Amino acid sequence: MEPLRADMFEEICPSSLNPVRFGRDKWAGLVIRCLEDGPRRFSELRVPLHRLTPKALTRSLRLLEQDGLITRTEYAEPVRRVVYELTPLGRSLLEPMRVACEWTAAHWDALLDAREA
């Protein structure tokens, strides 16, 4: 699996203007997108989500886990390792998220104008 890009979520991108929220906090949608291609470790998630503090990312992960959208698996290997992964319920959000992102991209100018007004 390819590493997540640091510029996956730029400062000004459609996700920042999307009026539709997925999950209980504003970062949940971004976390879900990071897990779209498979399981990731906390440190991997921090790369594209560098604007979040570790505390905010931990809170978002816990809320997503409580809602049944992700699983947290801890491995007690020689070095402790924790992996986060989308559940089938979490995966079912990917299509509605794609549609919401397409809508936001199509209405980018109107959304920017409304926010600046």
Rank of each mutant, 00 (worst) to 15 (best):
R81I: 13
R115H: 04
E102I: 11
H107M: 14
L94Y: 06
L63E: 11
E44W: 06
T73H: 11
S16V: 09
D113L: 10
L57Q: 01
T87E: 13
V20C: 02
P48L: 04
A100C: 04
V20D: 02
R33C: 07
N18F: 00
T73A: 11
D37K: 08
S60E: 08
M1H: 12
E74D: 12
H50Y: 13
E77F: 12
H50I: 01
R41F: 04
P39L: 07
D67S: 12
L17A: 01
D109P: 01
W103M: 11
E36P: 01
E74V: 15
P88L: 08
S43R: 10
L4R: 14
F22M: 01
K55R: 13
P39W: 06
R59G: 05
R98I: 00
Y75I: 12
E11H: 07
A110Q: 12
E74A: 14
A56M: 13
T87R: 08
R80N: 10
Y75Q: 12
P14V: 08
D37V: 03
T58R: 15
L17S: 02
D7W: 04
E116M: 11
I12F: 09
E77M: 13
R51C: 08
A100R: 01
G68C: 12
M1F: 13
P14G: 00
D25R: 00
R51V: 14
L57S: 06
P54F: 07
V83P: 01
